[in-house]
Design a protein around this nucleic acid. Structure first.
Lengths: 213, 213
DNA sequence: GATCGCGATAGCCGAACGGATGATGCCGGA
DNA sequence: TCCGGCATCATCCGTTCGGCTATCGCGATC
């Protein structure tokens, strides 16, 4: 029997038993799809994928504790005979999408997508195609067409301290730089995020998931 | 046949098809539990519950657009012959818990709970008991023992404007009060949230889901 | 080799912020 | 009836912000 014609072998990675059961139930309603393994975190995922050699991995981005879905995707894609990874998550954020795609994901769908879209997505990534939910695609297009912020590592670091309510002087001490430097970074952050105050920057940074709430 | 012995009739309310399928698959593995309806939003939920008269409703708190799970719970509990409502959600926040319980929910479990806990929870609320996930219970106990913040309506309003990056003067104009009043509210907010800057207040308010990200 | 982005630094200055203190009116519970 | 919480307003004052302008070293890009 030709493997390529025998149906697609899937592994599910999600920390919620309910979601895994749901995906399994939905997927197994399709004659050509088969769930060969489940994992609740990064370590389990790597183990299961090594053993079962699936065609496609359905990956949740938010895995609770430990490494997230993006990091896990990168690990899986680094294996010999790597599976295609289809990210299936709840939130749409530019940084989420970017990190997932950078990690080697072939698709990005949302959990509120109708089952049909999910099935089509699985088959498409198995064929080597790239699949994006329409919301996701729209967001990417919007970013490409408009001057994208793209904060530097240092700026993100500053945002983290900002959300902790630190004053410029405290941040400077924490980062071992002068207060002038902090202010300079802040000015860049404001400009990139299109805000004009620390409070606005914190809100927008959390909203865009640049920093965690 | 005694209805009480014939098994429990459930309705699932969640905006994610995947989660509904998962709950259905899990629940129907139990001989004494039966899913008699599904809904993806508040309007559907009320309709389905009116028609099917279930014993227990499994309610997601985050229903995307429209009324949230807490508001929907309140509506369902206001019906004649109201069902027991078991909230099943992802995040644990004091305000979420409080609003759900205030709305008349009999239980609060997390989606990452093992299926067994879910089944036990369903049977317990059907018997009229109250069920709380251990994390949830711990959080409630902690709040009861420590002086709780409890922001006023006006303070929450101020927080919203704060997250938009408005200056005190702008907030004052927006709310038709003097700048001194705004500063007074801010001082109370800082004290209640245990922060000392606008940025910190915004971060904590979002973290505690007092305002939307 | 010139240019560009990034991180770091500096000074200046007006505006905004945060703390402290105190006062008024209203409402509701003790 | 008195007290406490809430919303409102006010003044003072020291500190902090945020905008502006400008410089410098470095690595990458062209």
């Amino acid at each position: 029997m030709d493997v390529a014609e025998a149906g697609l072998r899937l592994v599910l990675v999600d920390d919620h038993p309910v979601v895994r059961a749901g995906l399994r139930a939905l997927v197994e309603s399709q004659a050509d799809l088969e769930v060969v393994g489940e994992a609740r975190d990064a370590a389990e995922a790597e183990d299961v994928v090594r053993r079962t050699q699936p065609d496609v991995v359905l990956m949740d981005l938010n895995l609770g504790e430990g490494p997230g879905g993006a990091a896990t995707t990168a690990r899986l894609r680094g294996l010999p005979e790597p599976p295609q990874v289809l990210v299936l998550t709840t939130y749409v954020t530019e940084t989420d999408i970017r990190s997932a795609l950078d990690a080697g994901a072939s698709g990005y769908l949302l959990k509120d997508a109708p089952p049909d879209e999910l099935f089509r997505g699985v088959r498409a990534v198995a064929r080597g195609e790239t699949v994006l939910a329409s919301d996701v695609a729209a967001l990417l297009v919007r970013r490409v067409n408009s001057p994208e912020p793209a904060l530097t590592e240092r700026e993100v670091q500053i945002l983290g301290l900002l959300a902790d309510g630190l004053a410029n002087k405290e941040m400077a001490r924490r980062l071992l730089v002068s207060e002038a430097t902090v202010k300079s970074h802040l000015a860049h952050i404001y400009s990139k995020l299109a805000v004009e105050s620390r409070a606005g920057a914190v809100a927008k940074a959390i909203e865009q998931r640049i920093i965690r709430a």
